[in-house]
């Protein structure tokens, strides 16, 4: 089975973010980057399938030069080879423009299965995989925790709201968006890190993929979120803060 895993590099969630001077994006100079968490689970699911059924896992990522570190990480974890779509204008592409780029690169590979995370930790649109499936004319299922291969294709476990699940049968080829937590992520071994350096990393220029559509939605401005409640911030040493809070819980909230 040939599986393509589309991976996004996103700002590390532990690092504070600042709005840039233009108010249109975040200050990238401050940031550290990491693999989008649901994408890491998509990669793991692809590797589990490969461990069981053989085949090839190909990592696909679009973005500027810095994305190569995340691609190397995926290769170190065991992906066989990688495709890097080089583009510096991620912030200006909308979900459709992005999906068009990915779909064009995927078409060249003719995979049996395309996996990606269900949403990114930065923009959080949750649409890339679904649109890629539409553009490729493939069946799709979202919020997937687990994939089993069988005679007529795959059976997947889909998460529903409030603790419910559902199994779905799909023919191959297909596109799935993977939810975090369905599998345990493997770590890269020293050996894996060493071997990653020798694995094929193909670079494609976005301009060569023949996709040129103007965006249909734009991010006009970034703001700090509005507070929904007036919060009493309690300060002091941990002991002082704890004592103050307990006092409030007693006299204002009446729960102690």
């Amino acid at each position: 089975m040939k599986i393509i895993v589309a991976i996004k590099q996103v700002p590390d969630r532990e690092v504070p973010v600042r709005i840039n001077a233009a108010g249109k994006w975040i200050e990238e100079a401050d940031l550290q980057f990491a693999m989008n968490e649901p994408d890491a689970h998509a990669l793991e699911e692809a590797q589990l399938l490969k461990d069981k059924h053989g085949g090839e896992v190909v990592v696909l990522s679009a973005g500027p030069e810095r994305v190569a570190t995340t691609i190397r990480e995926a290769l170190a974890k065991g992906a066989d080879r990688a495709i890097h779509i080089e583009c510096d204008d991620l912030a200006h592409r909308d979900a459709l423009g992005m999906a068009q780029l990915l779909a064009a690169a995927i078409r060249l590979e003719n995979p049996d299965l395309v996996l990606t995370g269900l949403q990114s930790e930065d923009l959080g649109m949750g649409q890339t995989g679904v649109i890629v499936a539409e553009l490729l004319g493939l069946p799709c299922a979202t919020l997937i925790l687990h994939v089993d291969k069988n005679e007529s294709g795959i059976e997947v476990k889909r998460e529903l709201e409030e603790g419910w699940f559902q199994n779905i049968q799909l023919p191959l080829p297909a596109v799935l968006t993977i939810q975090s937590g369905g599998n345990k992520l493997r770590y890269a071994t020293l050996m894996g890190i060493k071997r990653a350096k020798t694995k094929e990393l193909r670079r494609l220029a976005a301009t060569d993929l023949g996709v040129a559509s103007a965006p249909v939605v734009s991010l006009e401005q970034i703001l700090l979120p509005q507070k929904q409640k007036s919060t009493q911030m309690i300060t002091g040493t941990p002991r002082e803060a704890a004592a103050t809070l307990v006092e409030r819980l007693k006299t204002e909230v009446h729960v102690i």
């Binding site: 923009l123 959080g124 939605v217 991010l219 006009e220 703001l223």
Partner: peptide, 18 residues
């Protein structure tokens, strides 16, 4: 249209074009 970015740490204002 306002929607959350960065897992709720920021909010973005989106506009439909064309």
């Amino acid at each position: 249209f306002a929607r959350q970015l960065m897992q709720g740490r920021l909010s973005g204002a989106y506009r439909k074009l064309g």
